[in-house]
Amino acid sequence: MSEGNHTDAPKIRPYITVEELYLDNCERLSLNIINSNASFGRKIKEQELHRPGLALGGFVEVFTYWRVQIMGNTEIGYLNTLHGEERWQSIATVLGFDLPCIIVTNDNKLPDELVEIANQNAITIFSSPLSTTMVFHHLSEYLNRIFAPHIVVHGSLIDVYGVGMLITGPSAIGKSELTLDLIERGHQLVADDAVHITKISPYQLQGSPSNVLTHHMEIRGLGIIDIRRMFGIRGIRGSKNIDVVVNLDSWDDNREYERLGVDDKTTSYLGVDIPLVELPIFPGKNITVIAEVIAMNHQLKQHGENPAKEFNERLISTMQSKALKRQQSETKGGL
């Protein structure tokens, strides 16, 4: 197993602003801005969310104030049990910290003091009609994606029969030509030349094109072409999880290549292992068909079938019964 060939260290986005959080989620979470004096430039640096229930109760020793604060029925319900100076003090203590923003769920009616102090301290309060669980679910998924480590890999990503295939290899080996050939045959381009890879979970990588290149390709001798315009919407795809890596290399007479497919090879990007197929190529070899077969073989393995292993198991059992018969006949012969 080897770490895939990319030179850049993984990048992690340092922060997003409250404004970005709002713009990306206002529709999905139906967010309303409650207070008039809101500071949209505050930074969110962590994917975790926090419910400040205990902090409202006065326990602020381990208060993770730098996280997005979610106030649900519990928090608002608790504040409603407090009165006068007590309620003011509780809110002022929590909002005295440098919070990025507060999201109140279930369209809870906010105590006047909360809005007043938020205005004084310029802390944005959003209100959402969704339940706390739903808000947590949506925002965790969103922030997890925002703060996921990512790298840029030299290669092409294409969806072949639903299998995300990352094609790598040295420059001018024919990655783009293979990709173009696959698009011609009805498969979908995700990215060519530079693939943005994001670790969306401990065992999942997602690839997407760069915002600049989108679905353009460079073909040597021809120049830049627009795949979307040429092949239409069916020829492209926005993003795709990477299922298998196909590494192209020139045929080397002195190298030994995989002949069996009984052992699974892997490579890794961002610490995620991905099945690897090393494909030696030479002029005139039809690698497009092989790429399609790699995708189908991957699908078979995903469905618990390993043709090479099963073939071998059948062969072994045939040979063992042959060996047994020979042994028996030899014993008889000896008597």
């Binding site: 002949r259 069996l260 072994i316």
Partner: peptide
């Protein structure tokens, strides 16, 4: 096990 896939691979 006889000459199954792995030994065959080595032989080849």
């Amino acid at each position: 096990l006889g000459i199954h896939a792995r030994p065959a691979g080595l032989l080849v």
